[in-house]
């Protein structure tokens, strides 16, 4: 928790800054609208956290989100009665993709960077091969409700975000989470303690796939169908996780901080917009802040992988 503190401070400062120039932000609807917008990225960050804490990457989530939305649109094609079966299918797709990532990474010893990069190409190629190049069909009203409607005063997506957050926290407190993070910290010690490292890693990828499915469902509802809907989300999710103080290479950081990292990123976008910094320069500011945040974290923490004194076993990448 101690290490997670900085991100909450930064988040708080950003939220105060937003509120200062836009008082509406402090009112429940204003803040809920912010959370609603941030929910998909926060959910993706939660999923990505499991993979990163185990010492891996998942670059396939962006294209997986696109796949989920495009598949939903084509299969539902405006027919409300198809909503629930398709939702179930989307969840299954997410899990299967994650499972495939995990199995290839562990059983075939392919570095996850490459596994998920390949998966990214395969997914985006396959889905457009199927739809013939552009998204087709339409989402149903029932489907879009999750992304843009409310239950009483609270948006569905905020409720779903809360549930995802709660489940993620519980998972990390459970035996699975504790052994996963131990394996990310010291794979050999974990396996000599009887941890099934491969299995835990595969689960982590499956969770990431599942989170992409949920994020896709919310984003599709929120933003509508487009071929670019998931573009760049994998990098945003990884950035959010790292901003939350989670270290690439595994074994450190909390899932709450990772989700807070996603909220921070969204708050940053909101603030930049408020101050009239155009859509493009926003990226520049984002880039500077990410590097600065990670650099500050690295300088303060003594035992960082990749630092000069680290033993080779802490290398963040797998040798194929």
């Amino acid at each position: 928790m101690k290490r997670a503190l900085p991100i909450f401070t930064v988040l708080l400062v950003l939220l105060i800054a937003i509120a200062a120039s836009n008082p509406y932000f402090l009112e429940p609807p204003g803040f809920l609208a912010f959370l609603k917008r941030a929910a998909p990225l926060a959910i993706l960050a939660a999923g990505q956290y499991f993979v990163i804490v185990a010492g891996e990457f998942d670059l396939s989530v962006g294209s997986l989100v696109t796949v989920e939305v495009v598949v939903a649109a084509r299969l539902i094609d405006g027919d409300d009665s198809a909503t629930w079966p398709v939702l179930a299918l989307l969840i299954v797709i997410g899990l299967l993709v994650g499972l495939a990532n995990g199995v290839i990474t562990t059983a075939l010893a392919v570095p996850s960077f490459i596994t998920t990069l390949g998966m990214m190409l395969i997914l985006s190629g396959a889905v457009f091969l199927w739809t013939g190049g552009a998204p087709r069909g339409a989402l149903s009203e029932g489907f879009r409700a999750f992304g843009r409607e409310e239950l009483g005063p609270i948006p569905w997506s905020v409720l779903i975000l809360l549930v995802v957050g709660a489940v993620a926290i519980l998972l990390m407190r459970a035996d699975f989470g504790r052994t996963l993070i131990a394996a990310g910290d010291n794979r050999r010690a974990a396996s000599l303690s009887g941890v099934r490292v491969h299995r835990a890693t595969i689960f982590a990828f499956a969770i990431s796939g599942l989170s992409a499915a949920i994020a896709g469902i919310l984003l599709g509802g929120f933003a509508g169908v487009s071929a670019q809907i998931g573009q760049g989300l994998e990098f945003q999710a990884i950035t959010a996780v790292v901003l939350g103080g989670v270290v690439l290479g595994g074994g450190r950081g909390s899932v709450v901080a990772a989700m807070a990292g996603a909220l921070t990123l969204e708050a940053l976008f909101t603030l930049l917009n408020l101050h009239g910094i155009s859509g493009a320069l926003e990226f520049t500011v984002q880039g500077v802040i990410i590097i600065a945040a990670v650099a500050v974290g690295a300088v303060r923490l003594p035992f960082r992988p990749g630092a000069s004194i680290s033993p080779p076993m802490l290398k963040t990448k797998e040798t194929p």
Partner: peptide
Amino acid sequence: LKVHAFIATLG
């Protein structure tokens, strides 16, 4: 700055 290459070059 000892930033992981992934994050550094992404930034």
